[in-house]
Simulated assay, not measured.
Amino acid sequence: MKLESNASIQIQKPVAVVFEGIVNPANMTQYFISESTGRLETGKEVIWKFPEFDEKFPITEIDIKTNRSISYVWDPDTVVTITLEQLPDQSTVVRVNEKGKEFNEANLKWALENSGGWANFLACMKAYLEYGIQLRKGAFDFMRNN
Rank of each mutant, 00 (worst) to 15 (best):
D54F: 14
E61Q: 12
T29L: 03
K44P: 10
T42G: 08
V23K: 04
Q30F: 08
Y31I: 10
M28K: 10
E45L: 08
P51Y: 07
N27W: 12
D54R: 12
F57N: 11
F32L: 15
F32A: 15
F53Y: 15
D54E: 12
K65I: 14
N27H: 11
S34Y: 05
E41R: 02
I22A: 07
D63L: 14
T42I: 03
W48G: 05
A26N: 11
K49R: 08
K49L: 08
T42P: 06
N24I: 04
K65F: 09
I64S: 05
Y31S: 03
K56V: 13
N67S: 08
S34T: 05
L40K: 01
F53P: 05
T60E: 11
E61G: 06
N24Y: 00
T29D: 02
T60A: 11
T37F: 02
A26F: 09
S34C: 04
T37Q: 07
L40Q: 07
I33M: 13
G21K: 04
P51H: 11
E35W: 01
T29F: 07
T66L: 10
M28Q: 14
P25V: 00
F53V: 02
P25R: 00
K44W: 09
F53W: 13
K49P: 06
M28Y: 00
Q30W: 02
E55T: 12
P58H: 08
A26P: 12
K44E: 10
N27V: 13
F32G: 14
F53A: 08
E55D: 14
I59S: 03
V23S: 05
